[in-house]
């Protein structure tokens, strides 16, 4: 239903000497989402996960690549495509406080997309807004309130109501629970899961919180520096991670329990700058199991497993022939 082919988003930046260079935020990403699926993208800040979401909605400039939703090519951005896109794909942002206009009532905020895209007005409009608030579990009395009168969780529900107002088939959720407390986060997650079942929505769920992705998504892609480096069903990726980065990422989650599970030592160093990408495998500067004279030269290919793939030289069955040895 959503197909992204070889998407590249490069930004022009100047380095500290004033020379123009490229910041490769997303560098050759392909995604294929089935209808009714929840697909999670995880990665650290700066990995380009939010940029993908924005590029799909044409909120970020695409350098290269092709995007299709429901078989319609929306790579070209003309008026017709834009209007169609806004009705069929919507986004919920991280911070509901800044996503709602403080001077608009909840009624106006939720009604806005309906007014722009349809001819519903008056009583029908009000009834529709009430219906939407009911879907997200807010009572009618909220309709003439202002955002500051609502708690964080309630505001996020309003944002979701606004996003589903035009009955889109694709919903992009960009860290929808990061700004919320755990008890509220769990309410929103439960609600998102049931909403997806009821409306048969497709989710592109962007998060840095792996536990949340695991809870909500069927498939997951792990991003590092503009590339997806491992993809698979949530179960496979979380239970049998193949890529060393995925392993490190999973090992770094603090476990809420009395005894800490055995895990690998934390990764050394920081994520490199997307302006000055490492040659070869992008992870080799931090990789604990890198192969000398190979990982810093050649970018690894995708190595497919039954329920997913990962791009790492160590998964190459012909590794010996290429001539590398693990350090």
């Amino acid at each position: 239903m959503l197909a992204v082919e070889n998407l590249k988003v490069h930004f022009d930046v100047k380095n500290n000497r004033g020379v123009k260079t490229k910041l490769r935020a997303v560098d050759g990403v392909s995604l294929h989402l089935k209808k009714g699926e929840a697909y999670g993208i995880v990665g650290e800040s700066g990995s380009g996960k939010s940029t993908i979401g924005k590029a799909v909605l044409n909120l970020a400039p695409k350098t290269e690549g092709k995007i299709e939703i429901d078989g319609r090519d929306i790579t070209m951005t003309n008026r017709a495509n834009e209007a169609w896109l806004r009705q069929n794909a919507q986004i919920v942002f991280q911070d509901p406080h800044s996503a709602l206009n403080p001077r608009m009532t909840i009624m106006r905020s939720v009604a806005e997309p309906i007014i722009v895209h349809t001819k519903t007005r008056g009583h029908d409009l009000r009834r529709r807004v009430e219906e939407l608030l009911d879907i997200v579990g807010l009572s009618k009395q909220f309709i003439y309130r202002y955002p500051h009168e609502l708690s964080g969780g309630q505001k996020q529900r309003v944002c979701i109501a606004r996003a589903i107002a035009l009955e889109p088939s694709l919903l992009i959720l960009d860290e929808p629970t990061s700004a919320l407390d755990v008890s509220v986060q769990s309410q929103i997650l439960e609600f998102l899961a049931s909403l997806q079942r009821d409306l048969n929505l497709t989710y592109l769920f962007i998060s840095h919180n792996l536990s949340v992705v695991r809870y909500l998504c069927q498939r997951v892609g792990v991003m590092y520096l503009g590339n997806i480096i491992e993809e698979g069903t949530t179960k496979t990726v979380f239970e049998h991670p193949q890529h060393p980065y995925t392993k490190a990422l999973l090992g770094a989650i603090p476990y809420p329990g009395a005894t800490q599970p055995q895990s690998a030592p934390p990764l050394i160093g920081d994520i490199p700058s997307p302006v000055d990408l490492p040659v070869g495998c992008r992870f080799h500067t931090r990789c604990p199991v890198k192969v000398a004279n190979l990982c810093d030269r050649l970018a690894p290919e995708h190595h497919h497993q039954t329920l997913g793939w990962a791009s790492c030289h160590l998964l190459d069955p012909d590794l010996d022939k290429v001539g590398g040895k693990p350090e």
Binding site: Q185, L189, S211
Partner: peptide, 17 residues
């Protein structure tokens, strides 16, 4: 609080707010 946190060891645990 503990029931509200997704548990990495029990992915299918129902979350309760």
């Amino acid at each position: 609080l503990l029931q509200a946190v997704p548990d990495p060891a029990k992915p299918n645990k129902k979350l309760k707010g």
